[in-house]
Amino acid sequence: MDSSAADLKPLINVRNVSFHYGSIPVLKEVTFSINPGDFLAIIGPNGSGKTTLVKIILGLLKPSRGEVRILGQPVEEFFDWNRIGYVPQKATHIDPLFPASIKEVVAMEFHAVSSRGMRKRDKELSVARALQQVGMEDFTSRRIGSLSGGQQQRVFIARAIVNKPHILFLDEPTTGVDTETQDHFYDMLDSLNKKEGITIVMITHDIGIVNTHVSQVACLNQRLVYHGTHEDFCRSKAFKDMLAGGHHLVSHRH
């Protein structure tokens, strides 16, 4: 990761963002920022607007009100998308017969407009390195549909980091992944955050990860209930309220 002037400022600024699906409010006046090096967990009960918020940040949805800035630019005008990696929620729900090998899936990231002009050899090296980072270097020619859910998630993370993004978004990445693989998975994210310097934003229902891996917590329930360090969160009223209120904010392993 190269350090630039942009790294000194927040990577993402979310200001007064509200969103409605029809007449149903999903997000109300959400304001927070994400700084370089953060490992941020976005938590909250089902229907609290976590995925909607991330989609708004990534420009996949337009907010009803408010503004999102990425690296200082309004999201509508942002064009340097190879700085952003994204692993969607439904990533594991792929067609098992889809005719693409693992290295082809990872290389898909290079075919966006922003990656034109890169040499083929450099692309191959980047794909190999990304797969090595997620421990999937021995499976390069396997068809994506033949992998387990946890292995597929690793491949999707490799795809998301192959362009060396500054920030990586993951939407419930451990859905459908067994407990042992989850632990390896979080260790891998930790390594990406601490060794590679990639800022990580992860939506999760798994409260356990808040105590072990993340540095920041954003607790959402339509409004931003809490945003700060995980140590403070565990002592906060928001944390106690969520546990007492039975908001399904429990260890969420499928």
Binding site: G59, L60, W81, A91, M108, A112, V113, S114, F156, R159
Partner: peptide, 8 residues
């Protein structure tokens, strides 16, 4: 969705 976020 991932394609869109990548700038496709």
């Amino acid at each position: 969705e991932a394609a869109k976020v990548s700038g496709v």
